[in-house]
């Protein structure tokens, strides 16, 4: 198969996946028990008419298939709808939430990659040593801790030194750009740390096993026989080949950044996409849920696609 054929096939597959996900998302939330207007209409001074007024306004009085057609049509025109609960465009709500999530989650992920890859390589290199044992056990432990539990423990023990909620100190008066940066970085510390700790263990374990596999290959033995220095064998010969599974893992986990944010953002009251999803679920805010899940789907599919492309680049055998 030629390179372009491969890419076209992967891209087409990605697009179909997104479409299927859009459809499933639409019906999924509507088969959930509980309806959207009930929550909004439980207001002490409201009249009984509010329920009907809301249903009509949100188009919930139309048949389901018609709502679906309207939704698809609007989506193709780039309109994600209006949030039921705050009456603002979903795209605005999501843009704002995503802009808050990405710096925090990306920092956590990058730190996780750095720690995970280096401890993984080191563990494989010094296999069986005390350090390998400590590092591997720590990785397994952090990998298996429930995210929200770890987040709470971090919050309780570290919050005297770092802010435990929100993105910035609203009472900081006219900060210079540097002061503002420091303030946001301090707020980001605990959630990003949690993010990094929950992610890194998996990286360590995968990198370690990939490395062990390549370290046992004949070409590594050859390199040793040639008398190459140990460091060179590890970095040039073994690590490059161990990169393959690692890349896939990283690309895939990038796609789940947004999803992984839900628990962490809830604990640290971070005003990002995870928080928005949580709120939308409790309020049965269908347009927000559809929008947020669309973003989730697209990010997962997109990074899968990137992983495919990278794979292709890293390992030419795939085309054969």
């Amino acid at each position: 198969m030629r390179r372009s054929d491969y890419l076209i096939k992967r891209a087409a597959f990605a697009i179909i996946t997104v479409f299927v996900a859009i459809t499933i998302n639409f019906f999924l939330f509507r088969v959930l028990p509980g309806d959207a207007v009930r929550n909004l209409s439980r207001v002490p001074r409201a009249s009984n008419e509010l329920v009907n007024a809301l249903k009509e306004q949100f188009g919930l009085d139309e048949p389901l298939w018609q709502q679906y057609v309207i939704y698809l049509n609007q989506l193709l025109h780039g309109n994600m709808g209006i949030s039921f609960s705050n009456q603002q465009p979903v795209s605005e709500n999501l843009k704002e939430a995503l802009a808050n999530t990405i710096p925090m989650a990306a920092t956590g992920t990058v730190v996780a990659i750095i720690i995970g890859v280096s401890t993984g390589v080191f563990s494989a290199w010094r296999r069986g040593s005390k350090l390998d044992q400590v590092s591997t056990n720590a990785a397994i432990a952090f990998y298996s801790f429930p995210t929200q539990w770890l987040a709470l423990v971090i919050l309780i023990y570290l919050s005297p030194w770092f802010p435990s909620h929100g993105m910035s100190d609203p009472f900081l008066i006219d900060p210079t750009p540097w002061e503002h940066f420091v303030d946001v970085a301090r707020h980001m510390f605990l959630p990003s740390l949690t993010f990094a700790l929950t992610l890194y263990g998996e990286y360590t374990l995968i990198v370690r096993s990939a490395m062990l596999e390549t370290l046992g290959e004949d070409y590594v033995l050859t390199a040793r026989a040639k008398g190459l220095p140990q460091r060179r064998i590890v970095t040039r010969h073994a690590f490059r080949n161990a990169l393959l599974p690692t890349t896939t893992l990283i690309a895939l986990s990038l796609g789940y950044i947004v999803a992984g944010a839900i628990l962490i953002e809830t604990v640290f009251s971070w005003p990002g996409i995870g928080n928005a999803v949580y709120q939308a679920v409790t309020e049965r805010d269908y347009p927000m849920l559809q929008g947020a899940f669309l973003v989730l789907t697209i990010s997962v599919v997109f990074f899968n696609f990137i992983a495919d492309v990278l794979y292709f680049k890293l390992d030419p055998r795939i085309t054969e």
């Binding site: 709470l152 435990s164 909620h165 609203p170 009472f171 953002e265 604990v267 009251s269 928080n275």
Partner: peptide
Amino acid sequence: GLQFFRDEDA
């Protein structure tokens, strides 16, 4: 200022 918390322990 009113600050919103998703988590009561926090």
